[in-house]
């Protein structure tokens, strides 16, 4: 499938990387289909590129690489499913100040390719944790 992107022009991506949001990225309710591709082999970063809007791309990270203690409590509907968890990174111009949103991770069913942004109500996580400091402390105590 040919995917139009803002940063890399038109790129050919295998269909298997396509995911579909059944519970949207909040604020992007119209955006259902994305491709999720690893930045590089061995990289903890991933690209989430909209198939509908070339200008819409997010940087995701494997949260367990940066926050080994990170815990996500999933409801029973995820029981016995093969899932992957990602967090959205917010890049800062001083990239050392870049943050990850730990309170609203992206959960992907690896088999069905169905994705959801879930909200961890009643957790201690916030929308902004520094990723390059070895700490899960939020930027602003919430």
């Amino acid at each position: 499938m040919l995917v139009k992107t803002l940063f890399w022009g038109n790129i050919e991506i295998e269909d298997e990387y396509k995911i579909r949001f059944i519970s949207p990225i909040l604020g992007f309710e119209e955006e259902k289909e994305f491709v999720l591709i690893k930045e590089q082999e061995d990289s903890p970063f991933y690209w989430l590129q909209s198939l509908r809007t070339p200008e819409l791309a997010f940087l995701l990270a494997d949260p367990f690489v940066f926050f080994p203690e990170y815990t996500v409590e999933l409801d029973e509907s995820y029981k016995d499913r093969n899932i992957a968890i990602y967090v959205i990174v917010s890049l800062n111009e001083n990239f050392k100040l870049s943050t990850a949103n730990l309170v609203a991770p992206i959960v992907v069913d690896v088999d069905t390719k169905e994705a959801s942004q879930i909200i961890l109500e009643n957790s201690l996580y916030t929308t902004r944790h520094y990723i390059f400091e070895n700490s899960s402390n939020p930027v602003v105590a919430g």
Partner: peptide, 17 residues
């Protein structure tokens, strides 16, 4: 807050990447 952070997280610059 999540909605706002999502919007702010759109990757805008290739330089940063």
């Amino acid at each position: 807050e999540i909605k706002k952070t999502n919007v702010e997280s759109i990757v805008k610059s290739k330089d940063l990447i």
